[in-house]
Design a protein around this nucleic acid. Structure first.
Lengths: 109, 109
DNA sequence: CCGTATCCTTTCTGATACTG
DNA sequence: CAGTATCAGAAAGGATACGG
């Protein structure tokens, strides 16, 4: 079993991780700081931290530290991350065509 | 918090559900029977059943029953489901460019 | 063949509290 | 500000057995 396409599976494993889509969506808009992201996303700091670490490990997100005072840390997309733009774009297109804004929180069968 | 884009969030909630990507990938290839999918996917029958039911509820997958003998049941994509083809395609493109086939099972920090 | 029901284990999430 | 540690509850996942 399981041999659809190893690369595709690998990609899905990253992208389909919960919250990753929203994080990417946000970072495509530009560099962000931790607290900004935490404010704009519906997740706790711990989860955001987990995901950013994971995405950094995957080479999708870059973490830049500016030794000013106070220290500033910014997150942005790497080239690999920016390459996901078409994916996010297509999801957005599909969402516009097929998903109603009220959809959220309706999926408890 | 949370107001990136309700539609996008709704879309991500469906698409990023674990295994959904692989299921869509498979169905884009054509109509499939339950046992075929179970054989080709790395998930148990219970999960496959759950996901198909969810996708059917979302109007993405169609379930067709042919009253032959023995009864034959086939799954295929609805128009809404086929509209996801560009998304899957872009993920595939990204995977080809950026994901190594060995990637699987490396994400346990 | 095509599932559903149940049980049990693993993983994921979120709240809270605490460092540099 | 930018996280990490811990802990408990929720959700997801797999195995198995059974029904149409």
């Amino acid at each position: 079993m399981t041999d659809l396409c190893p690369r595709f599976e690998g990609a899905m494993e990253i992208i389909s991780k919960r919250w990753v889509g929203l994080i990417l969506f946000q970072l495509l808009d530009g560099t962000k700081r931790f607290s900004e992201m935490e404010t704009d996303l519906p997740i706790s700091g711990r989860l955001l931290s987990d995901r950013l670490k994971m995405l950094e490990k995957e080479g999708i997100v870059e973490r830049n530290i500016y030794s000013e005072f106070p220290v500033r840390i910014e997150y942005s997309l790497s080239e690999k991350g920016r390459a996901l733009k078409p994916v996010i774009q297509e999801i957005q297109n599909w969402a516009n065509d097929w998903v109603s804004p009220e959809h959220l929180n309706e999926n408890k069968a």
